[in-house]
C-alpha cells in the first residue's frame, strides 16, 4: 500500500471516530482513546487529522496526548501486559511480580521491546481487588497472580524465564 493511501485510510477512520462525538472538542480525551484503540497507539497522521477536524491546535493535542497516562505516541507491543498496582494488589505482593516481569522482559513499566513483541505497563487500580494481584495479559484479567504464575505465562508467550537463559 502506498504512503498516500495509508494516510487517507487513517484520515477516514479518525473522521468516523470524531463524528461519533459530534465533533465536540470536549470529547478530545474520549476521541483519542478510540483512536488509540483503533491503531494500538496514537499515530502522528491521526493526531494531525484530529487537530484539523476538531479545529484544535496540534500543540494542544500533544499536550493532552502526553499528559494522560493512557496514551502512547509510539507503537505498542503485540503482547501487552499490565500489572495492577492498586493498594490491595500491592499489599498482596504485586511489587514482587513487577520486578519479576521487569527482569524477564527487560522492560520497565511503560516500555515496549524493540522488536515490538511486548509492552509492559502498570495501572493504578482495576477495581478487581478481590482477586488481586491482577495481571492483564492481552486484555484478559488474570487474578491471584504469583511470581511463579507470571513465569508460566511469560514462558507460554515465548520468553525465557530462568536467569541463566536470559
Amino acid at each position: 500500500m502506498s504512503g498516500v493511501n495509508s494516510v487517507k485510510k487513517v484520515e477516514v477512520k479518525v473522521k468516523d471516530i470524531i463524528q461519533k462525538y459530534g465533533s465536540d472538542k470536549g470529547f478530545l480525551v474520549s476521541i483519542l482513546q478510540d483512536v488509540q484503540k483503533e491503531f494500538n497507539y496514537l499515530p502522528k497522521d491521526a493526531l494531525n487529522t484530529v487537530s484539523s477536524y476538531l479545529d484544535v491546535a496540534i500543540s494542544r493535542i500533544f499536550e493532552v496526548a502526553t499528559f494522560y497516562k493512557a496514551f502512547s505516541l509510539t507503537p505498542r507491543g503485540r503482547h501487552q501486559l499490565s500489572l495492577c498496582m492498586g493498594t490491595a494488589c500491592y499489599v498482596r505482593g504485586a511489587s514482587l511480580i513487577e520486578s519479576n516481569i521487569e527482569r524477564v522482559l527487560g522492560l520497565k513499566p511503560g516500555e515496549t521491546s524493540p522488536d515490538l513483541e511486548f509492552s509492559f505497563d502498570t495501572v493504578n487500580c482495576l477495581g478487581s481487588c478481590a482477586s488481586g494481584p491482577i495481571l492483564v495479559v492481552d486484555e484478559e484479567n488474570q487474578g491471584q497472580m504469583t511470581v511463579a504464575k507470571t513465569n508460566k505465562i511469560l514462558k507460554k508467550l515465548g520468553k525465557k524465564v530462568k536467569t541463566d537463559e536470559s
Binding site: L28, V29, S30, V64, F67, Y68, N124
Partner: peptide, 22 residues
C-alpha cells in the same frame, strides 16, 4: 465522557479541564 488514566482528574477543577478537552 471518559478519562485518560489521570488520578488528578478526580479533583474538580482538573476534571473540568479534562471535560473541556484539555
Amino acid at each position: 465522557n471518559r478519562g485518560g488514566g489521570a488520578f488528578v482528574c478526580g479533583e474538580s477543577s482538573a476534571l473540568f479541564a479534562s471535560l473541556e478537552g484539555r
